[in-house]
């Protein structure tokens, strides 16, 4: 048995010199894939789940509208519409769409897509008011942003 008790001369340490490299690769991956949020969302956003999702192809053509109850009580308790960084009324939507269309080049203006990020508890009354205004503004492509439902 003495044979086995003999101490090995090889080093027991695991070389850690390559560890930073691995971590850096992970770091760069996250840095590249991160999209920093441009707007602060001031309304509650618990988007519903769905299964038949489609992906938006060109993000440059997308403008976002956020609908939900304000997070801070100073803005009231009724669901509101947020565009970019401000709350807007339904009647301002046509003007907002025109502004968003102006940001795009002339050939792409009709292809503007409006992504509606709507909280679960918002009633259809507000959503349909928004849709009517979008129709008025001739921005007919819609996307109801949802998350993937995992139950199916």
């Amino acid at each position: 048995m003495a044979k086995f008790r003999k101490k090995s001369k090889t080093s027991q340490e695991i070389p850690t010199a390559s560890l930073p490299d691995i971590i850096f690769i992970l770091l760069f991956f996250f840095m590249v894939t991160t999209v920093l949020r441009e707007t602060t969302i001031n309304v509650q956003q618990r988007v519903p789940a769905a299964t038949e999702l489609r992906k938006l192809q060109r993000k440059s053509l997308v403008s976002y509208l956020y609908l939900g109850r304000p997070k801070q009580s100073q803005w009231g308790t009724q669901p509101k519409i947020q565009a970019n960084d401000v709350f807007i009324e339904t009647k301002d939507i046509v003007r907002w769409v025109t502004q968003e269309k102006d940001k795009l080049s002339e050939v792409e203006r009709d292809q503007i897509t409006i992504a509606l990020k709507v909280d679960k508890d918002v009633k259809m009354g507000l959503v349909s008011d928004v849709q009517l205004e979008l129709r008025e503004a001739n921005a007919r492509k819609l996307m109801y942003t949802t998350i993937q439902d995992m139950d199916y």
Binding site: T34, E52, Q131, R135, L142, Y144, T145
Partner: peptide, 19 residues
């Protein structure tokens, strides 16, 4: 970066409104 990352969720139900 892990904490600050929000994975972009540009998926949803698409719909074309009538003219």
């Amino acid at each position: 970066f892990l904490v600050t990352t929000t994975i972009a969720s540009d998926k949803g139900l698409s719909l074309l409104l009538p003219p």
